[in-house]
């Protein structure tokens, strides 16, 4: 059996690790195992190694021959460059992406900074939802004065009035 990294020498180190309930196996030759720092399997993250090996394979799962309609980028291009063509590619090739990102990062959901613009839009949408909920409740409770007030405030939120509260 040949080494999964250099694909030339005979594998002498065999690693098996369970990640998120899935079994992953990697076979390495002596030189590659040393290079990757696989001396203590307990502290060694197999995912790091798999990142390089599995990335393009994961991408292949999301349908060969598919192209990004916006930039014309294909599966084969990713395999060649390891880069995407445009931001839309993240949607087009989303199927294999999850697994690939999981190997590279800590989870697959961004928890950091959100651009101000989106933050405002998001707050805006949430506020609108809240007002609509209150309106329904006011109508149900037959509090028509409150409902009329809420209706006016919701009007301000509709397109053309964005930003006004």
């Amino acid at each position: 059996m040949n080494c999964d990294v250099c694909k030339q020498k005979t594998a002498t180190v065999f690693l098996t690790q369970i990640v998120d309930g899935k079994m992953q196996k990697v076979n390495l030759c002596d030189a590659c195992s040393k290079e990757k720092g696989v001396t203590d399997p307990k502290g060694f993250a197999l995912a790091d190694l798999l990142l390089g090996l599995g990335a393009s394979e994961e991408m292949e799962r999301s349908g060969v021959g598919q192209k990004c309609p916006m930039c014309g980028f294909s599966q084969a291009d990713f395999k060649k460059t390891g880069r995407f063509g445009c931001s839309n590619c993240y949607e087009v090739f989303s199927e294999g992406l999850e697994a690939m990102l999981k190997g590279m990062h800590k989870g697959t959901t961004h928890t950091g900074k959100v651009p101000q613009r989106l933050l405002k839009a998001r707050q805006h949408a949430e506020e609108l939802k809240r007002l609509q909920r209150e309106l329904r409740k006011a109508v149900d409770d037959e509090k028509y004065e409150t409902a009329a007030e809420l209706r006016d405030r919701i009007k301000h939120f509709e397109p053309g009035n964005t930003g006004a509260t």
Partner: peptide, 18 residues
């Protein structure tokens, strides 16, 4: 370019998120 789930989108997926 910002994605609800993936955050800031980058050419290389190793930079995506922050």
């Amino acid at each position: 370019a910002f994605h609800q789930q993936y955050g800031f989108l980058t050419a290389c997926p190793t930079n995506v998120g922050t």
